[in-house]
Computed example of a mutant assay.
Amino acid sequence: MGNEHRLLTLIICLVLGGGLIAAVLGASRAVGPHAGTASGRPAPSDYVDIRDVPRGSAATPVPGPEGSAGSVVVECGRNEQGHYNEDNLVVSPGLPGGAHHTHAYVGNLSTNAMSTAASLDAAATSCTGGDRSTYYWPVLRRPDRPGTRPHEGSAGHGNVGEILPEASVVVEFRGNPVSKVVPMPRFLRGMTGDAVAYTAADEADVRARWGCSGSPDRATTRYPRCPTGDRVTRTLVFPSCWNGLDTVGATHRSHLRFPAGNGVCPKDTFPVPELRLSLAYEVPPGLNVALDSFPEQRHSPKTDHAMFVNAMTDRQMAAVVDCLNAGRVCRI
């Protein structure tokens, strides 16, 4: 009887102790700009009037005489096909639902967690020029309206509300300001941004860039409040210095790195076309939008990110490189 009593006492202590530890950990994670957002929604401090954002934060290096000053826009639509899922082929291939939030896609119409080089190469695409690459990013929602379509409720993990469709999507490649670019290899995988920025130890991988269509010289890592008539914008710029060996890296970043501020690539890397995705949304004035995220990231705007897999043919990629290196403006 004494042993049973001691065992019961031990169990009660463990339960109470576990609850105390959980409370302490929860309190420590709540400290900071998101304190008090127990619902997991963005905090008031996550929003900013675009007029309060300093000008000039989006400056880029001026191309030099040896640079590749061209640009190429790939016409891929704005996901009119309604291609959504909770997969992430770049980060968690082979794991359906591995993203724990919903991604929107343009380009390859078959992309999911189980995609392979062969399946991507054989699939249809939304790109009018035949580019079978896949380009994708987390959806933006309006939490004030319940989602009624199947893909709006399939993510779970606090990602709720009506998905805001993209009013425009621009898939663009740019050159390098200080040198010519070389082709990306087929099926190169890349990512930009930090999906766990809210809980990360630092902001080294944060690449979120939010803005308003009427103020292209103002960029922020917070959700912008735009004047009536402006669209909310997201600009996602990818790393463009390839190690010359791998199409995928152990950390999903090591094989493809960002250049320095002046455009110079790190040692032992080669400049490839710089991909940037420019997204725009019609957001009613005063509406608090929320980015899909992992549950512990609380929809922080700093967690904005995107991925791509290059499935262009060698001929298509050569055309992109030729245009960039010749300094032309092209559309394919």
Results as ranks from 00 to 15, higher is better:
T192P: 05
G147C: 09
P96C: 03
D268F: 07
R231W: 04
S115N: 09
V329E: 12
G17C: 14
G211R: 01
Y135F: 15
V289E: 09
E162T: 12
N288I: 00
F238K: 04
D87W: 11
A208W: 02
V321W: 05
D87E: 12
L164S: 08
R132F: 11
R141Y: 08
T199Q: 06
M307A: 12
R253T: 09
Y135N: 05
C241W: 05
N3V: 14
V237H: 02
D268Y: 07
V320K: 01
G193F: 07
P284N: 04
T313S: 15
A122F: 09
I332V: 02
V283C: 06
C265I: 08
A38H: 13
A104V: 03
R257Y: 01
N112C: 12
D121L: 05
L277W: 02
L291T: 06
Y136F: 15
S45W: 01
A27I: 05
T102A: 11
V171F: 08
N159L: 07
N243E: 11
L245S: 14
P150C: 03
E274F: 01
D230C: 01
P63C: 04
A27Y: 11
S179Q: 10
L7V: 13
T313P: 14
A99C: 06
V171G: 02
H252W: 12
R51D: 15
G98S: 13
P224M: 03
T235I: 10
F294Q: 12
P271V: 01
R253H: 09
V72R: 09
R6P: 03
G244V: 06
V90I: 13
V170P: 02
S278P: 01
S115C: 11
D292F: 04
W210T: 03
V248D: 14
G153K: 07
T192H: 04
G193Y: 07
E80S: 12
V24W: 10
R222W: 08
R78T: 07
G40E: 09
H151Q: 14
G244Y: 09
V248R: 14
S254N: 15
R186V: 11
L25T: 05
I11E: 11
C330M: 02
A59W: 11
R331A: 09
C212S: 00
P266H: 00
D217Q: 05
L324C: 01
A155G: 04
A326V: 02
C323R: 05
E75K: 11
P295F: 07
T247H: 09
L287K: 11
G158D: 06
A22R: 13
C265E: 07
P65N: 08
